[in-house]
């Protein structure tokens, strides 16, 4: 029995190592490539540790592109959009879960149905409206549409449906207003859900590509994903033709490291938060 256990344990750890290696290999390879001189990159031999080590790719990519600016833009937009979304969604989600008002269910159904509408269809009307307001190519143009995000409201409502209402009832007996109850009773209870919505919103804003591609033109507001996409093409719209892999990988690594580090530091909250999307009803 014991021997069998040991064998199982060893098998488990071997499998674990294989999984970890497979998942991390592309990222490590990206870093390895980014540290090689261009001539060593296209090699028939696999060298995980660069034979000749260089930071030249990073220097070139930082010289050629305002990556730090793009990163700051991404951080700022994602940060503000997250605050906005969490506030809006916590308010609306609470009302949808706990309050009775005319048209509630049909309204909620309409909101959820928007999950199935490809964003691309909304882009042109949105752009035209923003152009009329003269806010294209500004942070506002990137932030405002995030406030209309559907998943957050959905998750908040699910969460509020699942928690007992005793505390709220008690507060109401004490004569507290709805806003007061929401602020001092409900929100403290809702921290896990708020974290989840915050993480999901931050990630999806940080990663969003299509709208910023259309809505931004200048490096002053351009976000990281849009900037990174430019490495792909050095001559007119090359398809399937990455040039200068070393530089591309250096740029990709610079873009990848902040979220990876953030994730590793916060991984417990992250994973707990993400698993909340499967909220109990």
């Amino acid at each position: 029995m014991k021997a069998q256990n040991t064998i199982q344990t060893i098998a488990w750890y071997i499998t674990l190592i294989i999984i970890v290696v497979l998942m991390l290999a592309p990222i490590l390879w990206m870093i390895s490539t980014s540290l090689k001189p261009e001539l060593d990159i296209l090699s028939n031999e696999i060298h995980w540790i660069p034979e000749r080590f260089t930071l030249e790719n990073y220097q070139k990519v930082l010289d050629a592109h305002p990556i730090l600016r793009w990163t700051w833009n991404s951080l700022f937009v994602a940060g503000v959009a997250t605050l906005l979304t969490v506030t809006l969604d916590a308010l609306a989600g609470y009302a949808f879960a706990r309050m009775d008002f005319r048209g509630r269910d049909i309204l909620f159904a309409i909101i959820v149905s928007m999950l199935f509408v490809p964003l691309q269809i909304t882009v042109v009307p949105l752009f035209l409206a923003f152009a009329k307001m003269e806010i294209t190519d500004t942070y506002l143009a990137l932030i405002l549409p995030i406030g209309a995000n559907v998943t957050g409201v959905f998750l908040m409502r699910q969460f509020f449906l699942g928690i007992p209402s005793d505390l709220e009832d008690a507060a109401r007996v004490d004569g507290a207003s709805a806003l007061r109850i929401w602020w001092s009773v409900v929100l403290p209870l809702a921290r896990p859900a708020l974290t989840t919505v915050a993480i999901l919103t931050f990630l999806s804003t940080w990663n969003s590509f299509f709208w910023p591609l259309i809505a931004t033109r200048s490096d002053a507001v351009r976000t990281l994903p849009v900037g990174i996409a430019q490495f792909l093409s050095v001559r007119p719209g090359l398809t399937q033709n990455v040039q200068a892999y070393g530089m591309s990988m250096a740029g990709a690594a610079l873009a990848a490291l902040p979220p990876i580090i953030l994730f590793i530091i916060l991984q417990r909250n992250f994973i707990k938060g993400i698993s909340m999307t499967g909220l109990k009803g």
Binding site: V124, F127, L128, A131, K132, T136, L213, I214, R217, S218, Q230, S233, P236, G237
Partner: peptide, 21 residues
Amino acid sequence: LTMQQWSPLFDAFITSAAAGD
């Protein structure tokens, strides 16, 4: 001077032009 790849640049040009700008 505003620069990005030709294809998204033209996308942006057409949408901006539609908005009168």
